[in-house]
Amino acid sequence: QPLTSAAEALIAKPGMTFDGYYANPELTIPFTFGDFEFQEPILSKEEIYAQLFELFPDYFEEIEYEEPEEDEETEYDTSDLFINKLGYALTTEDETALAEIRAAKDAIYEETIDYYLENAGNRTIYLKYTDGRYIQISRASDLKALGKTGFLGIDKTGNEIDGYIITKDIDFAGESLAMPESFSGKIVGNGYTLKNIRLKSKSKKMDQDTHKDLALFYELNGAEIENINFEDAVVELDVKSGISVDAAFLAIKSTDTTLSNVKFTNLTITSGKGDDGQALYQLGDLFVEESGTKADGVSGENIEITASDAALINRFLDVTQ
């Protein structure tokens, strides 16, 4: 099973973040603890005799053992007392039968040791470390810091971090994500999927804003996002007429961002009824404005942007595919 948080603290390396368990020395195949069932190399007496009882129901019977009183004299043979204490009694004294039982007992021990050597004893688990201060994310709540949830670039106490390491598929349904002003760190996806990220901007009744911005980040500056899938994401606007809007899924502005092996599936962007030509709407699938983006292995499937003819739209994914 994985190490406890206390044990992970003992193997911590200065200036580095523990980045998970892997099955190969190249650190490309995550180790899945559920793929095998751990078993101790030596079974307990209870486990041994439970198996023997199943194998030889004619030679054993189940009993309820009761400890004799200290001053009670006993006349029965106590040579099998340890078996009685386990809840069984031998029903045969036949030497051939007893030899069968001993042989079966030895075979159980051998099979158990062989299983351990094959499935646990010879199994090597490799530990991966990443340079820098990263937060491991296995659920949406891991992104919470100072009362907000999002890729804010800080830990729960407000200290700046170098980025995030995704350790599981995460469903963001029902979560409201805050948009940080700027992010220059790294998001390591490890091939996992972030689902149902929903970004929404809605005008209030007494809204005095003249402009709205909506994205995961306002600005990406030298950021890196790698080996991650975004699925069923929504960018939804419900803004009053006359308010200008900049909106995209990843960022309003992006400079020198690196995207490696990133896939976007079922991304929907809707400008809403406020997009009536009375104010400027600038929309993008990933970015409203970008320069110097390096994209390798970036793809999009079922990307839908619904907007008025007056809206300006930057379709980055159309260029990279």
Rank of each mutant, 00 (worst) to 15 (best):
E118M: 12
E160N: 08
F82R: 11
I303F: 02
A6N: 03
A23G: 08
E100Y: 09
A233I: 06
T17C: 05
R102L: 00
I305N: 02
Q208A: 15
G185C: 09
K85G: 03
F33G: 13
Q321M: 14
A107D: 13
K202C: 01
T32F: 10
E160Y: 06
E75C: 06
R315D: 15
A104C: 01
K168L: 06
T78M: 06
L3H: 04
D207Q: 10
L216I: 03
L286S: 00
N221V: 10
F316H: 07
E67Q: 05
Y281C: 02
D71F: 13
T265C: 06
L237Q: 08
G189Q: 07
K85I: 11
E72G: 10
V188S: 05
F82L: 14
E304K: 13
Y164E: 12
F249M: 10
G174D: 05
F287E: 01
G274Q: 04
F217H: 04
E93R: 05
K240T: 07
E95V: 07
A107L: 15
T130L: 15
E236N: 12
E231K: 10
K204M: 11
D276V: 12
A173P: 05
Y88D: 03
L10D: 10
K263S: 11
D232I: 04
F60L: 09
L43P: 04
D256P: 01
F172S: 09
G150F: 09
S141A: 13
K186D: 11
K144P: 02
E61M: 12
L27M: 10
D309E: 12
T293W: 10
A104P: 00
E160A: 15
A89T: 07
S260G: 05
I243H: 04
N266A: 00
K205Y: 03
S5E: 15
F287D: 03
T293K: 13
P30F: 07
E111H: 10
N227P: 04
S203M: 07
L317F: 05
